[in-house]
Design a binder for these strands. Structure first.
Lengths: 340, 340
DNA sequence: CCGGGCGGCTGAAACGTTTTACGGGCGATA
DNA sequence: TATCGCCCGTAAAACGTTTCAGCCGCCCGG
């Protein structure tokens, strides 16, 4: 029962090993009568293919992995859903791994995935994305597609959104609304998305007000809780140094800031404007609907998966591509207030 | 390179196959000198274990799967995080599968997982949880733990929260606040959680007002979009039939309702009170902070994973357990208003 | 009537591990 | 010094597939 193998099926149907395998993999090379006999045997014995053996023979699995920074972040869940669609259509299986912004955990996951000889990996790496784990996958011939990360390297595909532009859009909007003391909240800056959004924001501010620096408050993670703490730090500043607007590295931070400010009686956007990033589903439903930079999340996931499948099938003649999408600013109430 | 096997390592180190395997699995049975030689060879060749072969030999994998109804629902992402902790501590790997409330997809996933001979499955099944897929896993000796679902069956473990009590808490609270025309929003009722919460709500109402029925509006899914549509339907009712309070099967529905009502100028809680379910992180950050029935989400995941690991190691002498947690009502502004 | 081709099936090899039975030294003990 | 264990290490079998070379019988054309 537990050990129903192709061999038992063969015996039960009175045929050879190879024939059963043919029924499974190339049904039309087997005569209808035999085929039926084998299928009956399979049903009678409750036989289920053993994927390990298949993989061992084939040298690779039908599994594709996606490694994200935070499974609980709605941005990534949407990316996952996009990827899922494409992967399942291709008859493969998507496994979701969570690095939790922790390099060591990411590393462990990649090691495990390499041991499993996965067919490919979609990843938003924790750091710069050059660590040996990724390189090794590449050397082994396992395709890797960077998600939400541009890549200078020609050696792999990537799918990204122009984060520098996103940062710029956010800050230009705030400047248009009359703000000048603007703070950027998020971190750690080792996360490239965080750094790029910062770069765009700083550039936009520098162009219009070369002498006004962009205040930066870094957080350890991109979560609601971190946002609350950051807001608290902001409120501790002397009044003169307090910004009139904050641009947050993602919506979770922004929602945390919003909650904390509201709790402390600071009015949004009158006393302080907020712009977030990602435009997750909950941004529009917030206490004060949140302005945010929208990214095409599902499209990001779908495209990444497509590139991966293409590379995995095309093999040597595959040409690496770098797809970059444009973000889009969605203005809602949290920043829709002209500064007097 | 791509095909570095244990055999090549052995040749390179000048030892036999078995010795390399011993170094990997029982390092202390091999002399330090030889061990070092083997380790050097491994490093030099960049050898990585082939998990397929391992599994094939072992007969089962080190992978544990969790099948959830919706990866994008914060309730499940928290359950996943809880399970993840436990599973990783045990040196196994957690793969997340998304059924999307779709029975066929759930079925496909279970088939694939069975082919992979996973070590166990945590699942919140789409329907009643008695379909042949789950039975088959059980017959094959693969442990299954039901998550967020009580189980009448003694044949497997389960971890759940008392949803009937949760429904009751919500409605009793609304009754205390002077409401009487109460509606229950959510669906489909084939999802046991949805049905149980409804049962508790209906019972609570019946006890206090035997002649007042609980109005029910069912949705197709438990998403924000479905909530918006449900609210729209509600508003289309003649004024006399409109409820003064709605209890929603989960927070996503509740947030959708809230958004739509706000958009249509209905004041919450003055014109209509709302109570959600799950108390997801975003509930407190909503336009009107949402009252909600809180469930111990991470604990649910952790406990489920623990039961699974226990069953998987204990084997025959394992006794199935059914853990039930108590929900807790969190009152926030969306229902904090005494009806005149 | 013979040779060739072909459809349908068989049998064995191979994938990379782990495990187990076994062998060859070597030190300790009598 | 001979014998017994003991420690290291070896070789081979087994796990369940897939694939490939080959075999058999049949039909068809010559």
């Amino acid at each position: 029962m537990a050990a129903t193998s192709i061999k038992e099926v063969a015996r039960h149907a009175g045929v050879s090993l190879g024939t059963v395998s043919n029924v499974l993999n190339r049904p039309n090379t087997v005569s209808p009568a035999t085929r039926q006999r084998v299928l009956d045997a399979i049903a009678a014995l409750g036989y289920v293919r053993n994927d390990s053996a298949r993989q061992l023979r084939a040298g690779q699995s039908r599994t594709i992995a996606i490694v994200v920074l935070d499974v609980a972040n709605p941005f990534f869940t949407d990316v996952v859903r996009g990827a899922e669609q494409v992967v399942e259509e291709a008859g493969a299986m998507l496994v979701v791994c969570n690095s939790g912004e922790d390099g060591a955990r990411e590393r462990r996951h990649l090691d495990l995935l390499e041991e499993q000889r996965v067919r490919g990996v979609l990843i938003t790496p924790v750091g710069h994305g050059r660590h040996p784990g990724l390189e090794r996958l590449h050397e082994r011939g396992i395709p890797v597609v960077l998600v939400d990360r541009g890549s200078g390297r020609a050696s792999r595909c990537s799918v990204a959104v122009d984060d520098v532009l996103g940062g710029r859009l956010a800050v230009e909007h705030l400047l248009d609304r009359g703000h000048r003391r603007i703070a950027y909240l998020g971190g750690p800056l080792t996360i490239p998305q965080v750094a790029d959004r910062h770069a765009g924001a700083a550039a936009a501010l520098a162009e219009r007000h070369p002498d006004t620096p962009l205040r930066v408050a870094t957080t350890n993670t991109l979560t609601v809780a971190a946002g609350r703490r950051a807001a608290e730090d902001l409120l501790a500043l002397p009044a003169r140094q307090q910004p009139s607007a904050v641009f947050c590295a993602n919506d979770l931070i922004a929602l945390g800031v919003l909650q904390q400010l509201t709790e402390r009686g600071v009015r949004v956007p009158d006393d302080m404007a907020i712009v977030g990033y990602d435009d997750i589903e909950f941004a529009g439903a917030a206490a004060v609907p949140l302005s945010s930079v929208r990214q095409p999340r599902e499209l990001l996931g779908r495209t990444a998966a497509q590139l991966l499948l293409e590379e995995s099938t095309a093999g040597a003649e595959h040409r690496h591509r770098h797809v970059v999408f444009q973000p889009e600013l969605v203005v809602r109430r949290s920043s829709d207030h002209r500064r007097p």
